[in-house]
């Protein structure tokens, strides 16, 4: 019987599960490497740590071809519009890993130029601590992300649509007294076009 013959070749599953399963093992990272963490990101891709064991070795430098943005390193005033633009250029579904203390919280650089955590400006899925995180730690971050994709992913990406509020910490400028703060012109048009 035909049915008899096909017996071993059927898998019954949810479509969401299948899509997530495909996605989680074929992440295409966009290395948004700005500083020291970028070197560790390169080391993660190199032979000793070998990120390709987790299906995320195909670094693409064009945001159009990526679905995982790894922000490795501190992001400063001049870079924020660039980062947002790259994030917006990436096609759905997409995730973001904030690698290192600087990207997650400003790290040791609590100065006038460094933003205190990229999650104030773009949505972040996984934070990897460390200064710099060891390559193993970044790999752990990728495994965690895979788990997150497996648990929450849907085929049409509806889980992203539900995240419609600001997810970052409270704005820092609230903590400044009014006489200490000044509204600088934020239209940094020479850095990038405004979004």
């Amino acid at each position: 019987m035909a049915l008899e013959f096909l017996k071993d070749n059927f898998v019954v599953t949810k479509l969401d599960y299948l899509a997530s399963w495909c996605r989680k093992y074929s992440l295409f990272p966009m290395p948004f490497a700005t500083a020291c963490c970028g070197i560790e990101l390169m080391a993660t891709g190199a032979s000793k740590h070998d990120i390709s064991r987790f299906g995320a070795e195909a670094f693409r430098f064009s945001p159009r071809q990526c679905d995982l943005m790894i922000v490795a390193g501190r992001v400063v005033m001049k870079m924020v519009p660039v980062m947002q633009r790259i994030w917006q250029q990436m096609p759905e579904p997409k995730w973001c890993i904030s690698m290192g203390a600087c990207a997650s919280s400003g790290g040791v650089f609590d100065t006038y130029a460094v933003v205190q955590g990229i999650d104030r400006f773009i949505p972040v899925d996984i934070y990897v601590p460390g200064c710099p995180p060891r390559p193993e730690q970044l790999l752990q971050g990728i495994i965690d992300l895979q788990e997150k994709i497996a648990n929450t992913g849907t085929i049409f990406g509806t889980e992203f649509g539900k995240r419609n509020v600001y997810e970052g910490p409270r704005p820092l400028s609230k903590f400044l007294s009014p006489d200490q703060s000044v509204q600088a012109p934020a239209n940094f048009r020479s850095s990038t076009r405004t979004i």
């Binding site: 006038y112 949505p123 539900k162 509020v165 000044v182």
Partner: peptide, 13 residues
């Protein structure tokens, strides 16, 4: 003087 946070944030949805 607060310049570093003078940007819009991008919401996930």
């Amino acid at each position: 003087m607060g310049e570093r946070h003078n940007f819009q944030s991008v919401i996930r949805s």
